[in-house]
Design a protein around this nucleic acid. Structure first.
Length: 262
DNA sequence: ATGTCAGCTTGAAGCTGA
């Protein structure tokens, strides 16, 4: 199975590029983040007409996550148990969707940005990651052989080498110790990040800010990751970052990350 | 933060979020 995760930054603005990507890279399952539309506005026919089934959750112009699959798609869940909401009163956001595609339980995840250290959104981010880890641990406890992939835009750069200038990021989100500890805690359940081994750094990124000519200057961040359950991780045979998709007019600020399973 | 985007409100330019 060829599985990809991509923060598309608006599925409507990017539909042509996404469809082209699916065929160019021969993708079986695509997890999308930041679709930026309500369910009713999702351009589902662009996917169904080329053989993909869609599961999407989107409440408004913010967030929005989807899974497109041409190898089956069933048992859709539009949030994970315990997923926290934001603000007061806490309201659910469209940041997680799960579906079973072939023999793999796939979760498309858009982790909260955090905005600034100490911001309520930062605490929300840490809580969100903590609850996700609890859920992942519970799934492994129930079934140690579960075949699950947690993929998406994590908004955390796990290592200093995952940002082009670590000094510049001191005191900012995405690199703080609590955020990195949250990913380490997830790995502590047994889920393993499977893309780095095939896409070693330094200088290997999945996101480049639109401003400041970050992409041509090769100044990016590695924040789009894939965590595989213990049963599935040994079956991962490759991974790649499709930098081509960050080029040219109408690109998302994220590149797709492709994982080869089996 | 913003040498940039996207979507919304609203009626062209400003706001929010990233």
């Amino acid at each position: 199975m060829r599985l990809a995760t991509w923060n598309v930054n608006s599925v409507r603005a990017r539909a042509d590029r996404i469809v082209d990507f699916l065929s160019r890279q021969d993708i079986d399952v695509l997890a999308m983040q930041e679709t930026k539309c309500a369910d009713a506005k999702f351009p589902a026919e662009r996917f169904t007409e080329i053989g993909y089934t869609i599961a999407h959750t989107g409440l408004d112009q913010w967030n929005g996550v989807a899974i497109a699959s041409r190898v089956g798609l069933s048992d859709v869940r539009t949030s994970f148990p315990g997923q926290p909401g934001f603000a007061e009163p806490a309201t659910a956001e469209a940041r997680a969707i799960g579906a079973t595609c072939a023999s793999v339980r796939v979760w498309s995840l858009y982790i909260p940005n955090g905005r600034e250290l100490g911001d309520p959104h930062y605490h929300y981010k840490l809580d969100w990651l903590g609850r996700l880890t609890s859920y992942a641990g519970e799934m492994l406890k129930q079934d140690p052989a579960t075949r699950m992939m947690l993929v998406g835009d994590w908004n955390v750069a796990p290592l200093d080498e995952d940002v082009w200038d670590p000094e510049l990021f001191v005191g900012h989100t995405h690199v703080s110790q609590p955020e990195r500890d949250a990913l380490t805690a997830l790995a502590g359940t047994g889920f393993r990040e499977v893309t780095r081994a095939f896409t070693p750094g330094p200088g290997t990124y999945t996101y480049w800010d639109y401003t400041q000519l970050r992409f041509p200057k090769r100044q990016g961040m590695r924040i789009d990751l894939a965590f595989a359950s213990p049963a599935l991780a040994p079956e991962v045979t490759g991974a790649a970052i499709d930098r081509e998709e960050r080029k040219g007019k109408g690109a998302s600020d994220h590149a797709p990350v492709i994982v080869e399973i089996g």
